[in-house]
């Protein structure tokens, strides 16, 4: 057989793709999104805690945050997912039964929080010190000043970096396949891989890859768009009522330093 034709059929066998597509869209896509978005949200919550601890004046908050960040940024994602997914499986067994899915989300969240913590920290630190001074002069406590004035400004500035992290999570969510998911829990990559393994044809895996690109490429453009908007300002001012000026962000209780 013509080797070029073999190559073509290995990757572009429409029949294999058509066969895999329904499951890809109804099972794989939702699972990938659930894994990535949940991990992004949990990772953000933990990331803010890490960021605030990281700039705390208390050494006992700064140090653990530093060590945590170094460890989870320094390990390969696959190793972390396997360590958490397998290592905590007995514990998870007692809480939610034999289901590796929550552990996958947990592992992804822990990894994301290490990166997001650094992103949030740089965002918070980029807000001028005079803003904190002005808020304190009005009578806001350090904690309230951070929550109402500093963090909302910092977060706006790091939106592009946050979306980049979401992109990374969409890709890294493929790694939870190590943990042996149920058929209904499989995400895009795993479904593509299963079809490829069963048929010996890589077309379904290529289809999975295309699905990732459909998710990630528009997001990279969203990043650029937000970046542009932040750089050049928004075109018009909205009505005062819809300003998300005081996002109700949870702050760690312990981090409320007593700066005077």
């Amino acid at each position: 057989m013509d080797p070029l034709r073999t190559l073509w059929e290995t990757f572009f066998d429409w029949e294999s793709m058509r066969e895999a597509l329904p499951e890809m869209l109804t099972v794989g896509l939702p699972n990938t999104l659930i894994l990535a978005v949940t991990a992004a949200l949990l990772g953000s919550a933990l990331g803010i805690v890490l960021a605030v601890a990281g700039i705390s004046r208390t050494r006992w908050l700064r140090w653990p945050a530093r060590v945590y960040t170094d460890v989870f940024r320094g390990l390969p994602a696959a190793a972390t997912i396997l360590l958490i997914g397998v290592g905590l499986a007995p514990l998870g067994m007692q809480v939610w039964g034999p289901n590796p899915y929550p552990l996958g989300i947990l592992a992804l969240s822990l990894i994301a929080s290490a990166y997001l913590g650094e992103i949030f920290r740089s965002g918070i630190q980029s807000v001028e010190a005079t803003q904190l001074e002005a808020a304190r002069a009005l009578g806001f406590s350090w904690r309230e000043a951070m929550r109402r004035v500093i963090i909302p400004q910092g977060i706006r500035r790091i939106l592009p970096a946050w979306v980049n992290q979401l992109i990374a999570l969409i890709k890294d969510s493929s790694l939870v396949y190590f943990l042996g998911l149920l058929a209904s829990q499989r995400e895009l990559f795993r479904i593509g891989q299963d079809y490829a393994a069963n048929t010996g044809n890589q077309s379904a895996l290529l289809l999975a890859g295309l699905c990732y690109l459909v998710l990630t490429v528009p997001l990279t453009h969203v990043v650029n768009w937000i970046d542009q908007r932040l750089r050049h300002g928004r075109p018009a001012t909205g009505p005062a009522g819809d300003d998300p000026d005081d996002l109700d962000l949870a702050l760690p209780g312990a981090a409320g330093g007593n700066q005077r």
Binding site: T130, A134, A137, L138, E144, D243, D246
Partner: peptide, 23 residues
């Protein structure tokens, strides 16, 4: 302050109502 230090991420009115509501 010399540099005004209004909170840039909220409207003028919100700058004034925020401390009134929260403090």
């Amino acid at each position: 302050f010399q540099q005004f230090n209004l909170f840039p991420h909220m409207s003028v009115e919100r700058n004034i109502t925020l401390p009134l509501r929260r403090i």
